[in-house]
Amino acid sequence: MLKDITLGQFFPGDSIIHRLDPRTKLVMLVVYIVALFVATSWISYGVMLAFLLGCILISRIPGKSIVRGMKPMVIILVFTAVLNVFMTQGETVWLRFWIVTITKEGCIRALFMVVRILMLVTGTFLLTYTTSPIALTDGLESLLSPLKKIRMPVHELSMMMCIALRFIPTLIEETDKIMSAQKARGADLESGNLLQKVKALVPILVPLFVSAFRRADELATAMECRCYHGGDGRTKMKLLRYSRLDLEAYCVGVILLAGVICLAVFGL
């Protein structure tokens, strides 16, 4: 069922990673991604992988959920691998027929890219799995607040993001309901060619859009009834505060990045 889609889903928990400040986690994710792109050798990849697995273990997120979240990635991964295998020029030719040449370099590169994408996505999942959407937008707003100086509507942007995230589960539930109702009237969503499948979506998308607009309207009215008028002078119920844990996490991040850069510089 649709409910099993894990996109951006939050797994409540009480691990060290869950307790980190959302800002720390966001910055750490950026550091992690930078390090991932700096890393070019198998040794540095090993270090990154160890770090990632360590984080997963600490967060106590079941491995099954992470693997399930990877499913939509399969097409992109296959595409990347195939492109790299065929498009990379190299010296050690393993196979050659017609216009296709497969080289050792190409295969290694393909493997490299696939591992990189997998680690990239897993790292991002770890953030959304351990951070509630509200905490995430709060952290983002706080990190981006310097941009207010150049008149960026930071609060409005984060509010929009927050609402969008908040309504993903609601809309998924709604889609589920509408799908069940149309299936009860004999709608066939599985069989048929592409055109028929697209046509079969109409009975689901029309009510879904109607209800999304209705919800948006109702939410806007409700917000206005409570005199909501944007970010100026608004205080927060839950203030973000750094703790010792966050300092330690930042240290780990700096060490990781420095380590990977050193490995790259020394060409290991």
Partner: peptide, 19 residues
């Protein structure tokens, strides 16, 4: 599939499923 037609199901607030 036959069961879907022989057992008709009207959901709660079915008017939200009109299209």
């Amino acid at each position: 599939r036959q069961a879907r037609f022989r057992v008709g199901l009207v959901f709660q607030y079915p008017e939200y499923q009109l299209f």
